[in-house]
């Protein structure tokens, strides 16, 4: 009888511990949040948003400098680099155990890889043609 009771108690304690862990995590998140807020950088979202807006400006000025003759290669290369989304896919496909999100990750890795390889190669092919030709 005592053994059973012990098991029960242990289970209850484990349950309590896991609940505590969740609470601790939430607390940690709140603390992390608070520390971020206290620094001058603002919340993590604002921090990322700053990067986002600055990157738009960089993109704006850089792309206006692209010569119109190379607008097709520009689309090719932007296509390839936007596949950097593969980093999210890699993380999803990486856990040791099989799960639905691992399958989603796998599919996304395939899709993004088609784009990375295809995008860079087709851009290279286009640019290869824009070599200076000897004057006839």
């Amino acid at each position: 009888m005592q053994g059973d009771e012990l098991i029960k108690k242990a289970e209850e304690m484990a349950k309590g511990a896991s609940e505590l862990a969740v609470q601790a995590e939430e607390l940690f998140n709140q603390v992390a949040h608070a520390t971020f807020q206290s620094s001058d950088g603002g919340e993590p979202f604002v921090f990322m948003f700053t990067i986002f807006v600055l990157a738009i400006f960089v993109g704006y000025y850089v792309v206006w400098h692209v010569t119109p003759a190379l607008h097709s290669p520009l689309m090719g290369v932007t296509n390839a680099i936007s596949s950097v989304i593969v980093v999210g896919a890699l993380i999803a496909a990486s856990p040791a155990d099989m799960s639905i999100s691992k399958i989603f990750g796998f599919i996304a890795v395939i899709l993004a890889s088609i784009n990375i390889f295809g995008g860079f190669i087709v851009t290279q092919r286009m640019l290869q043609m824009f070599k200076k030709k000897p004057k006839a």
Partner: peptide, 16 residues
Amino acid sequence: LSNTALIITGALVGSS
């Protein structure tokens, strides 16, 4: 994903 490389690249491609 809080991934800066993705945010920056996405913004570049988006504005392009």
